[in-house]
Amino acid sequence: MGETDLLKRLKEAIINYDTEEAAKVAKEIVEKGFDPLEAIEKGVSEGLKIVGEKFGAGEIFLPMLMMAAQAAKEALAILEPMLKEGASRKTIGKVVIGTVEGDIHDIGKNIVATMLTANGFEVYDIGVDAPASKFVEKAKEVNPQIIGISALMTTTMQKVPEVIEALKKAGLREKVKVMVGGAAVTEEWAKQIGADGYGEDAKAAVEVAKKLVLERGD
């Protein structure tokens, strides 16, 4: 099968949220020696973009989006290691996201992470119950444009300013944009604690993230 066909198949696999097919095609692409960067951009990213648009338009539902992101993840796991030294895929930006210390709620964060991925971001999820130091460590490692902090309850919300403080102490605060989220969070509170952005639901979070990256100008 020719390169164009394979790329098309990869894109289709993502659009049809077919994890097995996506992995299969990705492997074929690698075996045939085709350009992994092309495959990522024309196959995976394009496919995700369409899925993201369909979801935004209300044509497909959340599980389809999540499964498409899963398919993309599988394909990327096969294609990314094959990228030439120094080459990296185009993404809108890198995001480090996690739930604060003392809080094990993550479904909201997971939905946001997936939507960000589907919208072209590269997301590093540090999981739940994450102390401020973990946010800082990951930020130092991957140099994200955005740090997303999730806290569901009013009690654990108190940890969010601690993360921001830790970023300041590590000299990273100026380098990143901080977004906060969680059911008990409000726009007002986000402003109060010095966050750069807040989205009340996952779709809004994606819009805000896109805006923040544009603001940065890089």
Binding site: F61, L62, I107, G108, M115, D201, A202
Partner: peptide
């Protein structure tokens, strides 16, 4: 249930 259009 979770609303599958909005994730809320």
């Amino acid at each position: 249930i979770i609303d599958m259009k909005t994730g809320t």
